[in-house]
């Protein structure tokens, strides 16, 4: 019962953050609300006995990505002042029906699958040590690949984000 209440609280926090992030006018508020949704999800992970993933979620999403989004929002601040920005907000009809349809389908499929009605495995724990061992044994190749990918993404982001050379300055 306690778990149920905790789950519901966490789920409510997450959903509220997500909805707020998608609906608020102010972009900074949106970013903060998204961070809230990510934090709610991290709590649910903890509740599901995935401590390591929960903390990783908290660190990366709330700590890194949300901050990155806030920085981007601040850097592209002039965008919302553009003419036509007001009209752009009033286009919910383009997204909500599709989102609702997808949601309906997903829920229908979840409800329609009898195999999903099961109990959780008892005594599940995923210690950090075991995760580390797995990463160094079975998942060493994906780990290295991810490292490569992140390095490439880092370099790419730096190159893209660099200021243009002075020659093409007048264009910008």
């Amino acid at each position: 019962m306690l778990n149920e209440i905790a789950f519901l609280l966490c789920a409510a926090l997450t959903l509220a953050g997500a909805v707020a992030a998608m609906m608020l006018r102010n972009l900074v508020h949106c970013a903060l609300c998204a961070a809230g949704a990510f934090a709610g999800l991290a709590a649910i992970y903890l509740q599901l006995d995935a401590e390591f993933v929960g903390f990783a979620q908290l660190l990366i999403y709330v700590g890194a990505i949300a901050i990155l989004i806030v920085f981007t929002v601040l850097l592209t601040r002039g965008a919302e002042i553009q003419p036509g920005a007001a009209s752009s907000a009033s286009s919910w009809w383009k997204g909500v029906p599709v989102g609702a349809l997808v949601l309906a389908c997903l829920i229908w499929s979840i409800m329609a699958s009898p195999s999903l009605v099961r109990l959780p495995s008892p005594n599940v724990h995923a210690p950090v040590k075991q995760i580390g061992e797995q990463l160094m044994n079975q998942f060493v190749m994906p780990l290295e690949t991810i490292g490569l990918l992140l390095t490439a993404a880092l370099l790419g982001a730096v190159v893209i984000g660099l200021r243009e050379p002075r020659t093409s300055e007048p264009n910008s």
């Binding site: 383009k94 997204g95 599709v98 989102g99 349809l101 997808v102 389908c105 997903l106 229908w108 499929s109 329609a112």
Partner: peptide
Amino acid sequence: VQRYLRVIGLAFCGLLILLLWGCA
């Protein structure tokens, strides 16, 4: 891009419905 995403979403729904009906 949003149009593309919308189409992908609709297509996903269609696929899902097809699969569910097929299973049912």
